[in-house]
Simulated assay, not measured.
Amino acid sequence: MDFQNKAFQTSLTDNIDYPEFCLKASLDYSIFRDFRRNEIYRIALEHDSFEQGLEYLEATKKSSSNVLSKINEFLKNDQIGNPEVFDYDGIGTIAPPTLRYIKILSDLESEFGTLDNVNICEIGVGYGGMCRIINSYFKVKTYTLVDLKPVLMLAQRYLDHYPLNTTLIYKTMNELSKENYDLVISNYAFTEIRREVQDIYLEKVLLSATKGYITYNEINPEDFHSYTKEELIQLIPQIRVNPEVGILHPKDCTLVW
């Protein structure tokens, strides 16, 4: 498949190697069964360390959320894709990125309470792990996954292994129509794209969303001209800036409204 030249990439992961691998993994079972071990994929998504996983776990334990009551359900996330897993006391064998998703779920419950019967949009979906974690805990009404087409194909193959009590909707950026979502989520992805693409997501999703949770970083090339935290607060004044754990860069944080 002929993807965009790197000079025109829309995001840090829109770099030919990552979407091309996602396409191959979505179509070929011999690749799909171990996709979370692949070096290209690990650089993009499966790079959290044991120590970072421990930070996510400790933050979850300290939160007001009760999500760890469903840990046996969350462990099922790692039955697909053969991720690198570690043993954590009192939890079991689990991949650090899965602990990150659980930590985000605990943040969502602590910030917003129940997500039953809400309409969620996630921008940048990885393999669908966050979607699966949320939907194994809450009974979400609809869950819209937005990403590049090859990434969506891989996420759909992954999520099709699990029965979910929601309606899943897969959309690329240009397939999205403007909607009033109850909650928009983006785990670094929104802050890793070009400003002109961010503008599309702001117009179609973020500015009209009732609630939001964005994991924020500042690692883009200068030519992306991506929105800074301060600029986003100007656009969405109700944003609260919360510290993040397991950070890779000093400016990492979460933006919540």
Rank of each mutant, 00 (worst) to 15 (best):
F50W: 15
Q52F: 04
K62A: 10
E46I: 03
E58Y: 12
S63T: 05
I71M: 09
Q79K: 13
Q52R: 09
E84Q: 11
S49A: 10
S49D: 07
E55G: 06
E58P: 01
E73M: 14
G92I: 06
S64D: 10
Q52Y: 05
V85Q: 11
E46F: 14
D48Q: 14
E84Y: 12
H47Y: 14
S65T: 04
Y88W: 08
F50H: 12
T60Y: 05
S49M: 08
F50C: 15
P83N: 07
S64Q: 07
V67E: 00
Q79I: 12
I91Y: 01
D87F: 09
G92W: 02
S64F: 07
L57D: 15
V67Y: 00
A44S: 11
F86Y: 15
S65Y: 00
H47C: 11
L57G: 05
I80N: 06
G92A: 04
I80M: 09
K70A: 09
F86I: 02
E55V: 03
H47N: 11
H47W: 13
Y88K: 05
Y56C: 04
E58W: 04
L75E: 14
I94C: 04
G92R: 03
G90V: 01
G53H: 06
T60N: 05
E55W: 07
L45T: 06
V85K: 14
A44L: 08
D87L: 13
G92F: 00
Y56R: 03
L57H: 08
Q79E: 08
